[in-house]
Amino acid sequence: MNTFSMKRVALFLFAGVLSLTVLQTAAAQAKHTVDVKVQKINEIVAPGDVTINIDPSNGNFTGTATTSDGYDVTSNVSGGAKVQVQATNTNNTDQLNSLKILEGGTDAPGSADANTVTLVDSDGTTGGPQALTNSNFTGVDVDNLSVEFEAEVSPDFKPNKSNTSVTVQYTLTSTGGGN
């Protein structure tokens, strides 16, 4: 056998082995399906405590304060969600003319905007849950949303003796549609 024929045979054998390797690689393939399932979540974490200091030296018995650490909202409910607030516990509110959450200094999650909400009214009464957000929002995972409070007291409020405290409850409610 001449050298040229041996080279052709060797090349042919090399091509055959390479072809078998490629075929075996292709024959070794497999596949499977991965299912991704996401659980529903509708969670709200209230902000830290707030102290409102009022200095009536200019005749103004109103003060404001913003939460130093805001509230957190996580929601993926398909019909949307909204935030409600309510004064659930009041202490010594007879001299508290009003306590409000101010829309101008309050952040809302997602596509929503905040409303001004009166938690304690001028007669010292509190109402039920009120909408802090004026529209529904979906697909939210946001932390540290600020809340600005405003308090107004009467001139009879006894300095450093009549501390008033109000517990504010935050509720994240779904608005329906696929929950």
Rank of each mutant, 00 (worst) to 15 (best):
F4L: 04
R8A: 12
R8I: 01
R8D: 02
A10L: 14
A10M: 03
L11Q: 10
L13H: 07
L13K: 07
G16K: 11
S19Y: 02
V22A: 15
A26H: 01
A26R: 00
A28Y: 11
A28S: 13
K31R: 01
K31L: 03
V34T: 12
D35S: 10
D35Q: 06
D35L: 05
D35P: 08
V36C: 06
K37I: 10
V38D: 12
K40W: 05
I41D: 09
I41S: 13
E43R: 10
I44S: 06
V45A: 11
P47M: 05
D49Q: 07
D49N: 14
D49T: 13
V50F: 14
T51M: 03
N53A: 14
I54L: 01
D55F: 00
N58D: 15
G59W: 09
N60C: 07
F61Q: 02
F61N: 01
T62F: 04
A65M: 09
A65C: 09
S68A: 15
G70P: 09
T74L: 11
T74W: 07
G80F: 14
A81Q: 08
Q84T: 07
T88D: 15
N89S: 11
T90S: 05
Q95N: 15
S98D: 06
L102E: 13
T106Q: 02
G110D: 11
D113C: 00
A114D: 00
N115A: 02
T116K: 04
V117W: 02
T118F: 04
T118D: 00
V120K: 02
D121T: 11
S122H: 11
S122C: 08
T125R: 02
G127A: 03
G127I: 07
Q130D: 05
L132I: 09
T133Y: 00
N134S: 04
N136A: 07
F137K: 00
G139R: 11
V140R: 09
V140H: 05
D141A: 15
D143F: 12
E148V: 06
E150P: 03
A151Q: 08
E152F: 10
E152G: 11
V153T: 07
S154Q: 11
F157T: 08
N160E: 08
V166K: 00
T167E: 15
T171F: 12
T175E: 15
G176I: 09
G176Q: 02
G177I: 10
G178W: 09
G178Q: 12
